[in-house]
Each structure stands twice: as C-alpha cells, then as structure tokens.
Design a binder for these strands. Sequence first.
DNA 1: GATTAAACCTACCTACGGGTATAGTAGAAT
DNA 2: ATTCTACTATACCCGTAGGTAGGTTTAATC
Lengths: 206, 206
Amino acid sequence: MKPSREARRIGVKEKADHDGRRHIILCEAARLFTLNGFQNTKLVDLADRLNVTKPTLYHYIESKEEIIHQVLTIGNERNASLVRQARDSSESGLGKLEIFLRGYARATVDDFGRCVILADPRMLSGRLREQHRQAYRYVLDEIADIIGEGIRDGSIRDCDPHLLTFALMGTFNSLSIWFHHEGKMTVEDVTEAFLGFFESAMAAKP
Amino acid sequence: MKPSREARRIGVKEKADHDGRRHIILCEAARLFTLNGFQNTKLVDLADRLNVTKPTLYHYIESKEEIIHQVLTIGNERNASLVRQARDSSESGLGKLEIFLRGYARATVDDFGRCVILADPRMLSGRLREQHRQAYRYVLDEIADIIGEGIRDGSIRDCDPHLLTFALMGTFNSLSIWFHHEGKMTVEDVTEAFLGFFESAMAAKP
DNA sequence: GATTAAACCTACCTACGGGTATAGTAGAAT
DNA sequence: ATTCTACTATACCCGTAGGTAGGTTTAATC
C-alpha cells in the first residue's frame, strides 16, 4: 500500500530541465547556508526543503563540497562581473569605484553574495580552496587597481590602494552579517551613508 | 613493559595549577581555532598540541562547546573592558572613539579577538549563543553611544551612530582576516591609515 | 502497451569525532 | 608504608551525516 504518491515528482520543482533543477538546488543551498551556516546545513535539510530525498540530490550534484564550491563560484563570478562592469565604464577612478560599490552592496545581501563573504574557505580542500581564493583575490586586486587609477587621475586622495580596498570591503562586507531586508533601511540607503563616511578618503583634496 | 614514561605528566605544561593549565588549554584552543577554524579543529588536535590525550582535556573542560564559549567570553570581556576604558576617559566623544579603536585594532589581531569575530555563533546552542550575542551586542551599543556623545559634543559629524558603528567595526574587524604579523605594516600603521579614511565621517564640520 | 531514460526512493554502509568507562601513576599528606 | 587526590592514558561507545547500492516510478517515445 504505497502512501498515495499523488503529486510526486514535484521534487526539485515542476518545470525546469536538469540544469535548471540543479540551479534550483544551488539557490536553496545558498539560502540554507546563509540561514544556518555551512556545517549546520545537512544534506537532508536541503533535500527536505526541496521535497526530495538525499539520493535524489546526488542525481544533480557530486558532493556537498561541490555544492559549496558552485555556490561560491556563482558569487565570485558575479562580483567579478561587477568589477568588470565598473572598470569598463568611462568614469573616473572614483566614479568606477562608486559604481562597483553600489553594485557590490546589493550583491552582498543576497544569498550567493553572503556565502562568498561568510564562507570559511578552509572548508574546501586543496584545489577548490585555491580556486576560490584566486577568484576572491581577483576582485580585491581589481578594486585596488581602480583606486590606483583614481589616485592617478586625481579623483581619489593619495593613499595605499590596498588598505583602502580592505577598509571599504570590510565595511561593505559587514552588510552580509547584519543587514536584513525587513529593516527600515534599504541597501541603497545604507550604501549612500557608507559612501559618505568614506568621503574624505575618496574625494581628492583640492 | 611501560614505554619508559620519562618526563610524563608534562602534559598541559610543567608549571601552573589547575586553573592555569585550563587557561593554557584555552589559549592553545584559540590559536588552533583561528588557524584552522572551529569545526576543523578536533579535540585530538588540541590534545596533541599540548602533548596530552583527549580524556586529559576533559579533566579541565566540560565539552568542546565550553571551550569555544570560554574563548569567546575572554574575547568579549576584553572588548568590553576596552569600551569601558574609552568611555571612562575624559576625552570628547571623538577622543573616546579613537581610544577604543586603537585598542580594538590590537585586540582584533590576537587569537581571542580573532575568534570573537570569526566565530559563527550558530555553532553554540541556546543559552550560550544568546550569552555571546548579548556580550557582542553590548560592545556595539556602547560604541554607538560614544558616537552619539561625540555628535552631541560637536566632535563628530552628525550621522546615524549605528551605521557608523557598523562601518567602523566592519573595517577594523577585517583585520582579523587579512592582517598577519609577519607583514611589513604594524597594526598601529594600519590603524592610523584606517582612522584617516574615516576622517570626514568622524571630524565634525565647522 | 512495451521500452527506455530520467527522476526518485528505501535501506543501507562507513568514517569520523565528541565523549566516557576504567584503570593506572605520581606525589603529597598522614 | 599507606592512602588520598590530582592527573593521565588505553580502549571503547555511539550518534551523526556524507555517501551509495539497487530497485521503483513516471512520462515521453516508439
């Protein structure tokens, strides 16, 4: 007497092909990771959320580590794309930096962005850890480059570009910890306030 | 035929009474936690580092969770003490804020300080998590208070105290991730640079 | 309506790591 | 010497969670 499996096969979700479902899994994983942390998120939890059992997950993914890695890759990719978008604009260094930061702030408060910031890379082993480290590093270096450009073109006050990068990223990354969409401030509000705080660091002295 | 236990009982370390040894355990734990992460630090690793076996550890501590909690408590205590120290000085709001931040920067790059920032409180369960949350929160609220005081006494530019707190703490907390004592800059160097970045946020407009 | 491939499930294996039961030793006090 | 306490080790338990073997359902296709 099978328990009347009426609407089975809903599983990972009605519509969507293999890759589509795989992506749904990653989204839900990112959500759970930010919600409960990586180590606290069991594969069964993930499966449950998708109305599926664990082995079904393994139809779409190779291992838990792969899920984490994929989530981080998606996040890193987007950050990299934001950085390119800023860099390829025809603004001054300062302008590019602001373009990036406004995009980054928004990215930082969604599930993938949060994972990138909150994930402890030591969770990953060997090759994957190195891969993530490089992707993360790439963004930081590009920002430092943009800042350097701003210093040269006179739009940003002279300073150590890497230090300013760390300071800015530190501030904006903190969003992923304390910012919640239910609050009274929007990400945009906070972003403008943050940019204001760094006014003197970023605006060149006459 | 016992394996010639020459200098045994060295264990947790020659000199030091019970509480002393307990503290040594916590120090080494903090070191390993910052080095390898919490979840990646096995109790056996900790025991090994102290030339002791796991059961010996349990002579001094109740559980792994207790170790983590104690480490966090030590870190939180020190931060609280820094905050009080700043608050009880007779400086302006801005002066107090700077006193705190200079102390905090130094605290942030040692093992206990790093644990406080890098630890995922979700690791702790129930009461302990709440306790840590409150201790952490206390520091943030006090800083916001100090900033508020600075705004009122005219030493700090008008702004949302909580937002400035998040921005500052975000920047300084990032130290615990990327700062290494082997680098060419000292914490003090970085601190002054960071304070410079926030100059316009913190210096009141005339 | 039989065939097939993708999707899915039940039931299991296994490693790992926190924690313990138990027993033994060192040294101080009696 | 005996005994007591603090300390340490060996050997084990056991829950948990990642991962798998192998069979079943679904739905599209012939």
